[in-house]
Design a protein around this nucleic acid. Structure first.
Length: 647
RNA sequence: GCUGCCGUAGCUCAGUGGUAGAGCACUCCCUUGGUAAGGGAGAGGUCGACAGUUCAAUCCUGUCCGGCAGCACCA
């Protein structure tokens, strides 16, 4: 007998190997009918699984949030059956559940197109309507391989081989169609329902390996209810509405063009935004004791050979040979570290100089694969808010904690409070001895633990010169962006011959921390645009207000208002055009100007302004001086506000 | 880089084997109008680049460049 505990705490005994379905039926036929799967000790399982030992059991209906992944997984199987029915000879590979849906990868000479979706979806509906039960069989390895080989499913044969020896080979059938799968599944295809949709097709490598076959991947999503699917589709539209590439054009911030793939043409407004962000970081890091420097853009390749970049980073570097007859090759810097080490080395350093902190808004160039380029988020030329901190080994933990605090405080100022930390340890392609790596990783881990923040391990993802922490922030619509980083480097300073004199007059190689907070200013600008859907807070907005006239008799007063606003440090323009106020309101609203100061006959006479904020159709009339003073106050950057408050 | 799709006016997009069109934006004129598009006129394009097929190519074919989605890579 096995003892089964129900969610309400009741406990009953059943003969060994009674299935969940039997138990549900014994309780009530309607429960058995509604139940699509079960959770045993919290773990999802097939309802038809026998219960082998004492367990807590929960019967799950398709409305249970935990069942969503089953709906999607089942839908992936139905997708695969539909595709194989429509196009016999297509090989199936894998079809997992992902964050917002599922996909299935197929191997077929002719790739799918979105035009095929209607046919596939209706075939899927047919299969779902047939409502065939999912049944599970355990096959021997040999049998499974033979069956798949005979069917021409060579990828499946490879998958069977990849399953660890101590695991069973499970086959799930839905009618005649079957697939190798670890499960679990719901009781039948009919439980999937009709709230599903195929989303897109794309190529994907077999087993994620760019040297292997390219498969044709069909993405889909599924929900328990149609309303949830509709809400999801709406959310996708929302993300498109926030796309920084589109907003960048609408707000006249920047553009790209063919001749400079992956490089930004910043327009006046975009560059103002960029510089406002830069100025913010400059204040924050000056406060934290960093000295700003500037190192050359082009440095002879010999230095990059010495640093290890030539050996490990070359495919990402731009090389310049300015004269054919001159064999000298320069590297357009892809990183700032070697330059900063030269500055450290110039002049003898004492242990008393440590920590020695050099910061640079370093413009770096990296030859990114063309397919990786994406607006401001992934470019080939970008500006890092980079710094290198030269310290002793004993100072590592303390300094990492300081950087950690600084980074988190900065993200708060921009409204990012959901930040996670990833710890990346040694990659395969690296420089330096394992003993050095042991030391670096241990120090970083110690600092991480001292910070008391939750973190996750990102195995083998460290930089080639050292392990790193990476800061991932979540934006307003739930997307994650990797921005800041701290990296411990016990390799490069010695490779480039950096040392300081310790208290016993010995030459000692310093430890170097690499750190960036925004990471790339270009990318951070893009993230901010999307995070606030173009509605930048006043202090960041490149154009903070427009003084718009209703009649031309107000022109002089409008000019006066603009001059007064500028004198207070506000970024303001006038709109004196011969257009109706409706037109002006619409145009500036679309351009995401945060504040509209409307002046007509009445305002001119009374020396007031009618204030309209972006996103609201309400108006407030205030005396000009008071309105500008309030705006000027609001436009003070958050860090400056803190300092003022403290004073 | 790989797979698929795409490239026509500043933007969004029609269209055709006989060298092109709309709306918005732009310029000018009229209109001075109270909070998301007032009216009229005009100007604007080597149809991504280069080859090929053809009497004739923006359209068909090929190569290249660029973009989009995903993969791989990554700040």
């Amino acid at each position: 007998m096995v003892a089964v505990t129900f969610p309400d705490g009741a406990r009953r005994e059943y003969p060994q190997n009674t299935t969940g379905l039997d138990i549900a039926k014994s309780i009530s036929p309607s429960l058995a009918k509604r139940t699509v799967a079960m959770a045993l000790d919290g773990k999802l399982a097939d309802l038809t699984d026998p219960i082998a030992h004492d367990a807590k059991i929960e019967f799950l209906t398709r409305e249970d949030p935990r069942v969503l992944e089953l709906i999607r997984h089942d839908a992936a199987h139905v997708l695969a059956e539909a595709v194989q029915t429509l196009w016999p000879g297509t090989q199936v590979t894998i079809g997992p559940v992902i964050e917002n849906g599922f996909y299935y990868d197929f191997f077929r000479n002719q790739p799918f197109t979105p035009e095929d979706f209607d046919a596939i979806e209706s075939k899927m509906r047919e299969i779902i309507a047939r409502d065939r039960p999912f049944t599970k069989e355990i096959w021997s390895r040999e049998h499974a391989k033979k069956v798949f080989r005979d069917k021409g499913e060579l990828f499946k044969v490879e998958l069977v081989d990849a399953i660890p020896q101590d695991q069973e080979i499970k086959i799930y059938k839905q009618g005649d169609w079957f697939d190798l799968c670890r499960g679990p599944h719901m009781t039948s295809t009919g439980k999937i329902g009709n709230a599903f949709k195929l989303m897109k097709v794309a190529g994907a490598y077999w087993r994620g390996d760019s040297s292997r076959e390219m498969l044709s991947r069909i993405y889909g999503t599924a929900f328990a209810k149609q309303e949830e699917l509709d809400a999801y589709l709406k959310q996708i539209e929302e993300a498109e509405r926030r796309d920084h590439r589109r907003l960048g054009r609408e707000m006249d911030l920047f553009h790209f063009q063919e001749e400079a793939p992956g490089s930004v043409f910043w327009h006046p407004k975009g560059w103002t935004l960029f510089q406002t962000l830069e100025a913010y970081i400059r204040r924050r890091q000056a406060d934290a004791g960093y000295a700003e420097v500037n190192a050359p853009q082009l440095i002879d390749s010999s230095l990059w050979v010495a640093s290890g970049h030539m050996a490990t980073f070359r495919e990402n570097m731009f090389l310049v040979q300015p004269r054919e007859e001159d064999e000298r090759t320069y590297v357009v810097k892809p990183m700032n570290c070697p330059g900063h080490i030269q500055i450290f080395k110039n002049g003898l350093k004492s242990y008393r100089d440590l920590p020695f902190k050099l910061a640079e808004f370093g413009k770096v160039h990296r030859f990114e694969p063309s397919g990786a380029l994406h607006g401001l988020m992934r470019v080939r030329a970008f500006t890092q808010d980079d710094a290198h901190i030269f310290i002793t080994e004993e100072q590592i933990a303390e300094e990492v904690i300081k950087v950690n605090d600084l980074i988190l405080s900065i993200y708060e100022d921009f409204g990012f409070d959901d930040v996670t930390i990833k710890f990346s340890d040694r990659p395969e392609k690296r420089i330096g001895d394992d003993a050095v790596w042991d030391k670096s990783e241990a120090a970083l881990r110690k600092a991480l633990e001292a910070s008391g923040r939750p973190w996750t391990l990102n195995k083998g993802e460290g930089a080639f010169y050292g392990p790193k922490l990476e800061y991932v922030l979540r934006d307003a619509i739930g997307r994650d962006w990797q921005c800041g980083t701290v990296q411990v480097d016990l390799n490069m300073p010695s490779r480039l011959g950096a040392y300081y004199i310790d208290e016993h007059s010995n030459k000692v190689t310093p430890v170097m921390l690499h750190r960036a907070m925004f990471g790339s200013l270009e990318r951070f600008t893009g993230i901010m645009i999307e995070h606030c859907a173009g509605h930048l807070p006043l202090w960041l907005s490149p154009l903070q207000a427009i003084v718009a006239t209703i009649i031309s008799d107000a022109d002089d007063y409008a000019r006066e208002a603009v001059a007064a606003a500028r004198a207070m440090g506000l970024r303001v323009e006038s709109d004196l055009r011969n257009e109706k106020i409706n037109y002006k309101v619409r145009e500036h609203s679309l351009a995401k100007v945060p504040v509209l100061l409307v002046v007509g006959k009445k305002e001119t006479a009374e020396r007031t302004v009618s204030i309209r904020r972006l996103g609201s159709d309400k108006q407030q009339t205030m005396p000009l001086g008071a309105a500008l003073a309030a705006l000027a106050q609001e436009a003070v950057p958050p860090d400056v506000k803190r300092v003022k408050k403290a004073a």
